[in-house]
Design a protein around this nucleic acid. Structure first.
Length: 422
RNA sequence: GUGGGUGUAGCUCAGCUGGUAGAGCACUGGGUUGUGGCCCCAGUGGUCGCGGGUUCAAGUCCCGUCACUCACCCCA
């Protein structure tokens, strides 16, 4: 019986962890500079929280949540996203007290029961960033500016920022009606999925991939034409700010969001290099959600970055190798092996990154290992050296070899490290 | 949930119309009695995803099943 990870759950292997750490630490650094504080939220919440937040009718809630019943009979769910929990924590802990505006971020795994494919796992990781308490549009611009800066700091290129406005309740309802009327005229031309969408959630027809539907939707009414005065002003100001900040973007009136809670500004950062899952980050404004959750009426905006997708992009767009050990110990013979083993641990304790092969190998094999590990120096200690009381320290790049007295070898090497000779 | 592709060594893959399981990389040893990368030689390593069927004979053909993968759906 061989155990395997369950479908859609992946190990993050040592060769990838460097990339993960770089993304996380760079993110934390930048977010803190911009005034965001980290918050850590639970992996499990009551099902009801997500049902209310994301929307009962969304696929995420209706068929993609990992749910369970605890011993008291509570219906719980592994979080499929982070925003609902962050708002819950914000309200529960009264984070609004004394802070009219809160800027928060969190990093962690999310869970959705979907069929896995490129860029899509059942357990995946998001970096979530939220500005709670400011109506924008400066906050909208700041958030977008920061995310684009973050991606460029990571060295990503060829990204396209799409922005759109979904309006508020006042302007979306008339738009919905107009869109529905328009779609009805072409009802028979639409794909079967869209015929259903037309009734349930007509906005979804916008991101259908069937050619017939794309043609129909080309001349459909645009949300942007239905924005009320305030929403239009908000969107115009956002575009103006982005231009002033020199952030490139395309207005994409077809950009919709899957979660029900979005209002006004929405955006997505897309790439062409990841197949069908082309969004590496997406987000938008959710001005009504806080009130929906029973908190103070607080406008907010946030986004989520798909970490796996960023990792994949970084791996495709360039690789770099990690630094090797400072020192490789190459003993020959039992006595030298035992001494080297002690030195190895003492040197490590002193902060030298060093390695040794515990199998008794020939010098040639040990040198090969040192080379593969990209060790800077190798300490060779065989029977001759034990007799002389002096080991050989070889520089793997210059091939220079010097003698090191063995009775004080550890302190000698530490000193060399301090003088940056190793 | 639906559809396509793929499962052979640690990794990447070859294996034609059925006939004794292969290569490169990696690993170990040797060529150099104790000095890495390049080269040469040798060696270790496989229930050919799993189960059944056809056949004298199945990695190869048939059926089933599982897994991976890509796409739809959905979404970061």
């Amino acid at each position: 019986m061989q155990f395997k990870a369950i479908r859609g759950f992946k190990d993050i292997l040592p060769s990838q962890v460097g990339t993960w750490n770089r993304i996380e630490s760079e993110g934390k650094r930048i977010f803190e500079v911009f005034g965001y504080q980290e918050i850590r939220i639970p992996m499990l919440e009551k099902v009801e929280l997500f049902a209310r937040g994301i929307g009962e009718d969304t696929d995420i809630v209706s068929k993609e949540m990992y749910t369970l019943t605890d011993r008291k009979g509570n219906q719980l769910a592994m979080r499929p996203e982070a925003t609902a929990s962050i708002l819950r924590a914000y309200i529960e802990n009264k984070l609004y007290e004394g802070h009219p505006v809160r800027k928060l971020f969190t990093i962690g795994p999310m869970f959705r029961y979907e069929r896995p494919q490129k860029g899509r796992r059942r357990q995946f990781h998001q970096i979530n960033v939220e500005i709670i308490g400011d109506p924008g549009p400066k906050s909208d611009s700041e958030l977008i500016y920061m995310i684009m800066y973050f991606f460029s700091a990571l060295g990503l290129h060829d990204l396209v920022l799409h922005i759109n406005s979904l309006g508020c309740l006042d302007c979306r309802a008339p738009f919905r009606g107009a869109l529905k009327d328009y779609l009805k005229k072409y009802g028979a031309d639409l794909c079967p999925d869209c015929q259903i969408r037309m009734e349930m959630n007509p906005l979804r027809v916008f991101d259908c991939k069937v050619e017939r539907c794309i043609q129909v939707i080309k001349n459909a009414p645009s949300m942007l034409g239905f924005l009320c005065h305030d929403c239009a002003q908000h969107f115009d100001a956002l575009k103006a700010h982005l231009k002033e900040l020199d952030v490139g973007f395309v207005v994409n009136s077809h950009l919709m969001r899957g979660l029900d809670y979005y209002t006004r500004t929405t955006f997505e950062v897309q790439t062409q290099e990841l197949g069908a899952q082309n969004a590496i980050a997406g987000g938008g404004r959710y001005d009504r959600l806080m009130k929906e959750f029973g908190g103070p009426d607080t406008p907010s905006i946030g986004f989520a970055i798909g970490v796996e997708r960023v990792v994949e992009l970084l791996e495709e767009q360039g690789d770099w190798s990690e630094a090797g050990p400072d020192l490789f110990l190459a003993p020959l013979g039992k006595e030298a092996e035992n001494k080297a083993f002690i030195w190895l641990q003492e040197l490590r304790k002193a902060g030298l990154k060093c390695e040794m092969e515990y199998r008794s190998l020939g010098l040639k094999a040990q040198m090969r290992h040192a080379d593969r590990l990209k060790a800077r120096k190798v300490l060779i200690v065989g029977e001759d050296e034990l007799v002389k009381g002096k080991g050989i320290l070889r520089d793997m790049v210059t091939k220079e070899q010097v003698e090191v007295p063995l009775d004080s070898v550890v302190s000698e090497l530490i000193e060399m490290k301090e003088r940056n000779w190793i």
